[in-house]
Write a protein that binds this DNA or RNA. Structure first.
Lengths: 209, 209, 209, 209
DNA sequence: AATGAATGAGTCTTCATTCAT
DNA sequence: CATGAATGAAGACTCATTCAT
């Protein structure tokens, strides 16, 4: 009973199953069988839809990247205003969206990063993503800072975001989004001209002497 | 040609070979054969010395962690003075030491991080390392800041270091130590009380309007 | 050429191949490759069907045990009458049935016995089999003898059967079923009350003095 | 410090170690390393003394056979008298001597039997042993019975002994020597002319009707 | 005499992939 | 469209054996 239009559905089901396997046992346990079983399908199905294992993994990585893009876009669109500070905060928010801080997502990101070091295709996808974040941040910082400083601020904030995310992932506990946001916002405030910084509640205080 | 006292030598040769394989082809290509071949020995030798593959990988990870500890320690000991700012800079310096930013080291770190998500032993080692960095930073910040702010500054700087390191690794080009140091030092200066910050040459400048 | 419903067929083919290998070269030469080759299949097939080597061996042992049960049952059902003497003879007959005295069967039994000393699963199967034989014998002897004597007779006959079987196996020549039956039947006659024994033609004769 | 005359000592130590390994983990775990470790020596020592693994195992089997011969001989020599019945009992006693019913001995016998099916050298040793038992028994029975009957009695008693021994071994509990002796003695009494049998205390009793 | 370092062949097991149905 | 049987290559691990010291 061949059904028409099953392709996109099956694709999605298999990709979702892949993430569940990654979450449960890591990338090294992603076998075509385990994914097929997790998806409730037969062993040969993955090759049928994705050609081979790499095809599946690439599709999974593209999914993750798309999720991130959409999360960032969503926060930027729904931001209170278009000011650099608000937009920067929105970008940060998108990067720490639940879809990115779930255990499955965190494990997958790390796995893909690791894989990207030796897989040209993964590397391409991952670098495009890196550059997009940096360029978005640089654009917003650039609206208030000199280009050189804006680039540094963007590099710093991008690193801070990734670092917070990485340490959160490796910590083994649920991701502390609140702290991540606070530290990122502080960084933004400290780099944007002081008029904005005044609004920040969490400026660093000197120790009582 | 069996010689006595070869154990430590062979250990080191095999661990070095492991890093070379990781650098060339990634953790997933670390095979007992590939390591043995790289080391110019026979296939059974790894099990002979490390019990099994996990034993080898654990030894390799311990090596990396030890290298990092020693790099940090070295910079702290040889720092100009004991001031928080100098010591913080020394810690940063250690984390970006050549032994940590070589392609082999960067790939290995990423591989071990990824593996630590599903390997309890790796996770333990990695978390101990994370905590050491954070506690070192918190101690130095704590000499000038209130405890709460010191902890936040430590978390932020640790994240910034890891993030710079991570993005440098993924960038696929030689690591830009100079930039990493500059951005980290800026972070330190911006969190330590202003008397010290005045010395910083790279303060953020407002865009010429 | 994947066909549906091959499972039971393949199972049997592989078990048969296992027995052939045991017959030809002993249990220690039962290799997944050797079995697969003997069965005309590929190396990975055994794991596919039996999970692992132990699964195959256990299936083979179960087969042997089932064959014995069926041989005994067959002789008991087709026995001339239900008298203890006839039924005991039937049990003996079943134990020396051709399916149990073929070289393949004899080697396999010995191999499994040996293995059962260190393999709990094998030991369980083998002990259940031992107990069944003993309890069957004890039941029949019990119809004519006091319980204590019946148990002793059962133990003795079971031992005699196994011993004849064992020595026949180790002798290296074709199993002498006729002798085994005669000696076993004598044992039965000597333990059942004399009214039955009178029928026996092979009573022990005193040496002519 | 090379010592003279160590050879026989080392030989014995290694053979003893072999039996301990067989007792603990079965013949399949007898590796040159495990034996050497058990003997407190180095890995290469077995090859040094026995040439190769088969040499060790053959020496071990010879030891077991010698132990049996000596146990039988001991009981025959120290028997009360030279009557066939007493001598047959002595032979039985020897076969169930502690040195033969220890767990180590039982496991070793079974292992060697199994191995003898495919190892010509083992088969030779084992068959010589079988024949010796049978011929000893046949000689004693032959002093009272016609040759044909004596041979049958010998075959039956040999089988009974081996069967009792085998079932005792497989039972997994400590060997019940008392029962084995009683059943064997009964067999002897039932085959020797009745004048001797009258002495037997355990004649089979008819069930109370 | 004795050690133990080193080798390399052999075995079990896993898996991506193919393909007849 | 979908299944799952079958293959065969590759990897981890074991172990008998050799041999320089």
């Amino acid at each position: 009973m061949p059904k028409v239009g099953m392709q996109p559905v099956r694709h999605q089901q298999l990709i979702d199953a892949t993430f569940r396997v990654i979450e449960d046992s890591g990338l090294s346990d992603v076998t075509l069988s385990s994914v097929a079983t997790e998806a409730g399908m037969s062993a040969g199905i993955v090759s049928h839809y994705f050609g081979n294992k790499d095809g599946l993994l690439e599709a999974a990585m593209r999914q993750i990247l798309r999720d991130l893009r959409e999360a960032v876009l969503f926060h930027c669109i729904h931001a209170r205003d278009q000011s650099p500070r608000t937009q920067l905060r929105a970008i940060v928010h998108g990067n720490f969206a639940p879809s990115q801080t779930s255990p499955a997502a965190m494990r997958s990101w790390l796995a893909f990063w690791s894989a990207s070091l030796n897989n040209p295709q993964f590397k391409r996808l991952q670098r495009a993503n890196d550059r997009r974040l940096h360029s978005n941040l640089a654009y917003q910082f650039g609206r208030e800072l000199e280009r050189k400083n804006a680039l540094d601020a963007a590099t710093g904030l991008a690193a801070l975001i990734d670092g917070l995310w990485l340490r959160g992932t490796l910590a083994g506990e649920a991701f502390d989004s609140e702290q991540a946001l606070r530290l990122s916002f502080d960084f933004i405030d400290q780099h944007l001209p002081s008029s904005n910084r005044a609004l920040s509640a969490s400026s660093t205080k000197r120790k009582k002497s």
